[in-house]
Amino acid sequence: MYANKSIKPRVLVIHTGGTIGMQPSENGYTSVDGFEELVREKLDQSVHDTLPEFDLVELDPLLDSANLSPESWSTIASKVIEHYAQYDGFIVLHGTDTMAYSASALSFQLRGLSKPVIVTGSQIPLYELRNDALDNLITALIIAGFHPVPEVCIYFNGRLLRGNRSRKIKATGLDAFDSPNYPWLGQVGIHIELHSGLIRPAGTPQLAAANYQPGAVAMLPIYPGLPQSVIKATLTDKQIRGVIIQSYGVGNLPNHDKELMKLLEGAGKAGKVLVNLSSCLQAQVLHGTYATSAGLDKIGIVSGGNMTPEAAYSKLHTLLANSTNSEHVTALMQQDLCGELDQSSTSSSHSASSGSI
């Protein structure tokens, strides 16, 4: 990738907050100043001469990822865009709780990448003697600096995952992330093994931080006995322009609930974008497999295919931030824009190249 081996690649590390940079306090782990000094001190004790050059910038204020909002996704994307020409790769240090949301959102704002954007963090702070932070950081630096992975990825505990296919599956395990509906892009053991056939090719960068609209997207989980008041509040709220419906199995809804179906149909007619997504960890929505989903297309509900909830939510948020045309947004939700879904898993046959955010 780099013909001149005497010139080290340069990586920008964007520290957003999260466990990796925290220290204990009276109120539990919290972000503190001095993280860059700690990073360089730890790296000075390791094989730092084999690492790429790197600079580190921090968000101000640093945030526990539980406190991030869609506006934060735009802030992180803006940092990458601002420095895109100056660096060979990027690392986003991030808390694990909403890491999959941010990685997904970044993929839709940073399309056609020609450089790696690796999102990582840790379950144990770098400050602690026994931690997973140092290995995650060192490996992310090596991948971002020396390997042709022009995607937004999550690297965590030996797994390189497409960002918009990733989910946090364990709260305390070091192997906290996986991609249930897509293979790993690589695994790291004694060697770094990348699966080049799965990695998206470098493209022409289409980098644009989205102007997210607060409250534009809601998620409506379907469960037995779901109160009508919750359904109505979600589907009739004028601020909400799109709803991710988390249904059963392959997209089944309680179609005997006439009030639910009436509210869904009314929301579609009112111009809300309605996307059906399975609540199962591994699944794809296939309308018409059962009678309980056979009529959903007719009332304006589209399949989200096999997208993760994090990808569907951030994708819809990004599309609505850039378009007021609900029909256009609905069509793009069924298209694969940057590897977030299998095109065959939706009812649409649009080509991925036709999608313009």
Rank of each mutant, 00 (worst) to 15 (best):
P61A: 04
T308K: 08
L207S: 05
S31R: 05
V188P: 06
R40M: 09
E41P: 04
K258T: 14
G251Q: 02
L51I: 06
E151I: 10
K115V: 03
F54Q: 00
S354I: 12
Y182W: 15
V32N: 10
F146G: 11
H83K: 11
T98C: 12
K5T: 08
K42C: 12
G249L: 13
C338P: 02
D44R: 13
R167N: 07
P61E: 05
K115S: 01
N164G: 05
N276E: 03
Q206P: 00
G173N: 14
H15V: 12
L286H: 14
G112E: 08
P254N: 09
S279K: 13
I240C: 07
R130M: 11
L63Q: 11
L59I: 07
P309E: 06
Y84G: 00
Q86E: 14
R167F: 04
T19V: 06
I76D: 03
K5H: 11
N322T: 12
L141Y: 04
G266V: 06
L274K: 02
L126W: 08
F108W: 06
K170R: 15
S348P: 09
T16F: 01
D33N: 12
H350K: 09
A321G: 04
L220K: 05
H317S: 15
A100W: 03
E259C: 14
E26N: 14
F108V: 09
H94T: 08
S107H: 07
M1F: 08
K170L: 10
Q246H: 04
S229C: 01
G305E: 04
K170H: 15
T19I: 09
K5L: 13
S351I: 12
A171W: 01
L319P: 02
T292G: 13
P116E: 04
P116W: 07
D175A: 15
Y87F: 11
L141E: 02
L106H: 08
D135I: 15
G300V: 02
S349Q: 10
E37N: 15
Q343P: 13
L274P: 02
Q213R: 15
V11D: 01
R165M: 11
P24Y: 03
C338I: 12
P24V: 11
